[in-house]
């Protein structure tokens, strides 16, 4: 932990602000970086298709890494969590999902991991309520979606993927429900179109770097990957057209990124994002990973290993 040095003028300014706002005088800065892979990690969990209705099959995969690169076929245990979280829970899943009692295992076969979305997913994690039960429908996420938790244990790590589950629109007039059903297209996983290094304005393949070099990296995706989708606005009782935002997470086993994550919000029409990677001072092989996520739960990832001369 360290405190970033600041100028006297800034100190005076911050003191002014601190007095007025009562904000804390000193916030610790942790040296830990999400983008640095210093041991086993699960970086992404992916479902194909990205959105599925209850009772349909999905193929699950994950990006599991360590300092030696991507871990292929790691010993892993998959399962659907069947414990819904409390309505006022901050976390993505119920704390019960960390135990075994709430887990419905998914068979891990040689051909991959194929699971079937629980038939009752829309009542466990979605807006459906039993007829006459008078229970409160679950709230959707900001994109209007509902998600079934998928737990992965691998390399002594635990991660939760959230499988977007196709459920009916709740609490909307019938005509809106019909229009929504007709307009809505299930989410598709995005793709990483390219990974390049940018020198001035010229893009080139990213294959090598020198020690201590700072390399501007660019991740591109297709315009269609930031999909448009209908969104039910309960305030105005209308359907509105929205577009996915895109986030990219950067990881490296050595050196550092300026940004741990970058991306474009839904109003930004650009289809790329940049980050600067600072190569380590020592020569050797460095593994880098790039995970692209859309705001409806779609995932894509790519990896590259380069030699630092």
């Amino acid at each position: 932990m360290h405190t970033t040095p600041i100028s006297r003028a800034t100190v005076a300014a911050l003191a002014l602000a601190a007095i007025a706002a009562g904000v804390p005088g000193c916030e610790p800065s942790f040296s830990d970086r999400p983008s640095l892979v210093s041991g086993p990690k699960i970086l992404a969990v992916r479902s194909e298709p990205a959105e599925a209705a209850p009772g349909t099959a999905v193929v699950l995969s994950a990006l599991v890494v360590d300092t030696q690169g991507t871990v292929t076929a790691p010993p892993s245990a998959w399962g659907f969590c069947r414990a819904p979280k409390l309505v006022a829970e901050n976390a993505a899943v119920s704390p019960d999902c960390t135990g075994e009692a709430a887990i419905a295992p998914i068979a891990n076969t040689l051909g991959g991991v194929t699971g079937t979305v629980p038939p009752d997913a829309c009542s466990l994690f979605g807006p459906e309520t039993a007829s006459g039960s008078n229970l409160r429908p679950r709230d959707p996420d900001p994109t209007g979606g509902f998600y079934t938790p998928v737990r992965l244990r691998a390399n002594e790590q635990m991660a939760f993927g959230l499988l977007r589950t196709r459920c009916d629109l709740a609490n909307a007039p019938g005509d809106i429900v019909t229009a929504f059903a007709q307009a809505y297209q299930a989410n598709k996983n995005p793709r990483i179109a390219s990974l390049t290094r940018v020198d001035d304005v010229k893009e080139a393949a990213f294959a090598s770097a020198t020690r201590g070099e700072s390399v501007r990296l660019r991740i591109r995706w297709a315009d269609a990957d930031a999909e448009h989708y209908p969104f039910y606005d309960a305030t105005t009782v209308t359907l509105i057209d929205r577009r996915e935002s895109i986030r990219v997470s950067f990881y490296t086993t050595a050196g550092s990124f300026d940004l741990d994550r970058s991306g474009r919000d839904e109003a930004d029409p650009n289809t790329f994002t940049d980050d600067v990677w600072h190569a380590p001072g020592d020569a050797g092989t460095v593994h880098l990973w790039f995970v692209l996520r859309d705001s409806r739960g779609g995932v894509a990832f790519t990896t590259t290993s380069i030699t630092v001369d």
Binding site: A44, V93, C97, L162
Partner: peptide, 13 residues
Amino acid sequence: TYDAKNDRYDPVF
């Protein structure tokens, strides 16, 4: 725990 959808960790209390 790691929330792979939102790329963030959630605390266990």
